[in-house]
C-alpha cells in the first residue's frame, strides 16, 4: 500500500507498532526460556529479572552432554518420524483413490475423514489405554506411533486429496496410454507433481508427532527412558530432574527442528494453506 507524505509515516508507525507488540507477545515464552536457561541457581530462587547478572553461557554446551535430554530428543524424533511415515503410507493411497475414482462409499468415507478431524486423543484415551494394555503395546513406541498417526491421518488425507485432485486428468490419461497402471501413475506422475502437498503433509504429521503429549503421557508413563521431550519436561519435577535451566534449554532446542522445517517448507506450506482454504 503506497501512500504519499505524512500519511505514509502514520501508517508505517501503526504497522510497526502493531507488529512489534504482536511479536513481543509471541516471543514471550521463548525469551523466558533463554533468560532462565542462562541464570545460575541463585538467581532463580528469589524475584527474577530478565537479565541474568552472571549469565552461564556454558549451558549451550553442557546441554548436549545431558543424557536425559538427549534421550528425550531422540525419543521425540523416533515418534515424530514414525508418525510421519505411517501417516504418509496410509494417506497417499487413500487420497489417491478418493481424488481420482468414483466408487460406492466414497462420499461416506470423505465424510468420515472430515468429521474425524474433530476427534482429539483425549476422548478415546481410556479405551485406547486398555486396548494398548491388552495388545502389549503399552510402554513402547509402536503403540504411541499407531495411536498418534490416526489423529493426524484424516487431515492428511483431506489435504492430499486436494492436491491430487488438482492434477489434470489428462496427465493421468497420458500416463495410462504410456502403459502405466494405477500404481505406476501414482509413482511416476501424481507423486512428483504433488511434492508441495507431500511436503506440507509430512511437515504437519511430523509436527503432530513431535508435539504430541496426551498419548505419550498415558502410554509411556511407566517408562521414563522412553519419554519424549514433551512428557519429560512436563514431568520434570519427578523423574526428569534436570533443573530449570536445562529444562528451558530443552524446550528451546525442541522448538528448533520445527522452526527449521517451517522455514524450509514455508513456500510449500503456503500452497498447502491455499489449497486448504480454496475448497
Amino acid at each position: 500500500m503506497r501512500r504519499p507524505g505524512f500519511h505514509l509515516d502514520a501508517w508505517r508507525f501503526t504497522l510497526y507498532g502493531a507488529a512489534l507488540i504482536v511479536a513481543g507477545i509471541c516471543l514471550f515464552p521463548y525469551l523466558v526460556m533463554v533468560s532462565t536457561a542462562l541464570k545460575p541457581d541463585a538467581e532463580l530462587a528469589g524475584a527474577q529479572s530478565w537479565l541474568p547478572t552472571a549469565p552461564n553461557w556454558s549451558i549451550f554446551v553442557d546441554i548436549w552432554t545431558d543424557e536425559t535430554v538427549l534421550r528425550g530428543l531422540r525419543n521425540s524424533l523416533i515418534i515424530a518420524f514414525g508418525v510421519t511415515f505411517l501417516t504418509l503410507a496410509c494417506a497417499i493411497p487413500a487420497a489417491y483413490a478418493l481424488a481420482r475414482h468414483r466408487f460406492p462409499l466414497r462420499d461416506g468415507f470423505m465424510t468420515v475423514v472430515l468429521v474425524t478431524q474433530m476427534l482429539s486423543p483425549i476422548v478415546v484415551i481410556v479405551p485406547l489405554f486398555q486396548t494398548a494394555t491388552d495388545l502389549g503395546l503399552l510402554g513402547g513406541f509402536p503403540g504411541v506411533i499407531l495411536a498418534s498417526s490416526a489423529f493426524i491421518l484424516p487431515f492428511s488425507i483431506w489435504l492430499l486429496t486436494g492436491f491430487f485432485s488438482a492434477i489434470s486428468t489428462e496427465l493421468e490419461e497420458a500416463a495410462t496410454l504410456d502403459a502405466c497402471g494405477r500404481l505406476a501413475t501414482l509413482w511416476h506422475v501424481i507423486l512428483p507433481l504433488s511434492l508441495p502437498g507431500l511436503a506440507a503433509t509430512a511437515v504437519y504429521s511430523f509436527l503432530f508427532g513431535w508435539n504430541e503429549f496426551v498419548i505419550s503421557l498415558t502410554f509411556l508413563s511407566a517408562v521414563p527412558e522412553k519419554w519424549p521431550v514433551t512428557v519429560g519436561v512436563f514431568s520434570s519435577i519427578g523423574q526428569w530432574d534436570i533443573g530449570w535451566q536445562a529444562l528451558m534449554m530443552t524446550a528451546l532446542i525442541s522448538t528448533l527442528p520445527v522452526l527449521l522445517l517451517f522455514s524450509f517448507v514455508q513456500k510449500y506450506l503456503d500452497r498447502g494453506f491455499a489449497t486448504l482454504i480454496g475448497r
Partner: peptide
C-alpha cells in the same frame, strides 16, 4: 481392452506433458 493395450496414442487439449 485397457487403453494401454489398444495401440492408440493421444494428443491432449492441455498437451498433458509431464511437467517434471
Amino acid at each position: 481392452v485397457r487403453p494401454r493395450d489398444r495401440d492408440v496414442a493421444m494428443v491432449f487439449q492441455s498437451y498433458a506433458l509431464y511437467p517434471h
